[in-house]
């Protein structure tokens, strides 16, 4: 009997222990559940905060790129403006180069010979080809008669050009005053009048006028004058004058030299006889 009671007590104890163990296990499970829930919550919040940080990062990056694009656009605009400036400057320089080339060729040709008739031909060539004149004449000052005498022409006979008294009419006044004349109205050039040129350029050596170039009409395709034409007129006023003057002097001296040489030859021959 005692033995049985002892067994029962032990069984009870064991049962109690088992129940406690069961309760403890249940509590552990609950605690575990809670912890897992918390972990899940933490994980979720961590993930959310990571997304936000990434979004913030991306937003910052986008802002930075946008700023960069804006500054690049700004720079692009600046470069485009600079390009336009360079392009227009390039065109200007090109034009200037071409003008200088024209002036160089004209002046080179004018001083390439000492033959009077060749110099006159070169002046005619320049006025036709570089300026685009159709009808014009070169008149030179005759100091003996105080008249401007035509010596060469284009598009008209030399005889059709007038002999002009120094200081008279448009041509004479240009020769007297030494200032170029440009008509405001180029339309009347179709009616040819030898005393009323549309352009008259004095040929000057310093302030001394040795002649004029008198233009009566321009080529059909030429409607007016460009800056280059005025530059050429200036060049002709000075360079053509010196070229004409020096070639005339040279031709005269050559002629005189030939005459003197002939005299000398005659004188040398005489004593032999």
């Amino acid at each position: 009997m005692e033995k049985e009671t002892g067994y029962l007590n032990k069984a009870d104890e064991f049962l109690q222990m088992f129940k406690k163990g069961e309760e403890f296990t249940k509590e552990l499970l609950k605690e575990n559940e809670k912890l897992r829930y918390k972990i899940a919550q933490l994980e979720e919040s961590m993930e959310r905060s990571g997304d936000e940080a990434r979004t913030k990062l991306y937003e910052d990056r986008i802002k930075l790129l946008e700023d960069e694009i804006n500054s690049l656009m700004e720079r692009f605009k600046q470069v485009e403006e600079e390009n336009k400036d360079f392009a227009s400057k390039y065109i200007e320089v090109e034009e200037e180069n071409n003008n200088l080339a024209n002036l160089y060729v004209a002046s080179y040709q004018l001083h390439s010979t000492l033959d009077f008739s060749e110099v006159l031909r070169i002046v005619l060539e320049i006025v036709i080809n570089l300026i685009g004149a159709e009808k014009f004449a070169i008149l030179l000052m005759d100091d003996k008669t105080n008249e401007l005498v035509p010596v060469a022409s284009e598009g008209m006979a030399v005889s059709a050009a007038p002999r002009v008294k120094f200081g008279q009419g448009t041509i004479g006044i240009v020769a007297k005053e030494g200032a170029s004349y440009f008509s405001d109205n180029l339309s009347y050039m179709k009616e040819f009048n030898p005393t009323t040129p549309i352009v008259c350029i004095p040929l000057k050596i310093k302030e001394h006028v040795i002649g004029v170039i008198s233009i009566y009409s321009l080529l059909t395709q030429k409607s007016g004058f460009t800056n280059m034409d005025y530059e050429l007129f200036n060049l002709l006023a000075g360079h053509a004058a010196t070229a004409i003057f020096s070639s005339r002097l040279y031709t005269q001296s050559e002629r005189k030299l030939t005459t003197i040489q002939s005299f000398l030859d005659i004188l040398k021959e005489k004593p032999r006889r």
Binding site: N98, A101, N102, Y104, V105, A106, Y108, Q109, S112, I122, E125, I126, N129, L130
Partner: peptide, 12 residues
């Protein structure tokens, strides 16, 4: 035929 024009064109 014009030496002036010839030189000018050649130059260009």
């Amino acid at each position: 035929d014009s030496p002036t024009m010839r030189q000018l064109i050649s130059f260009a």
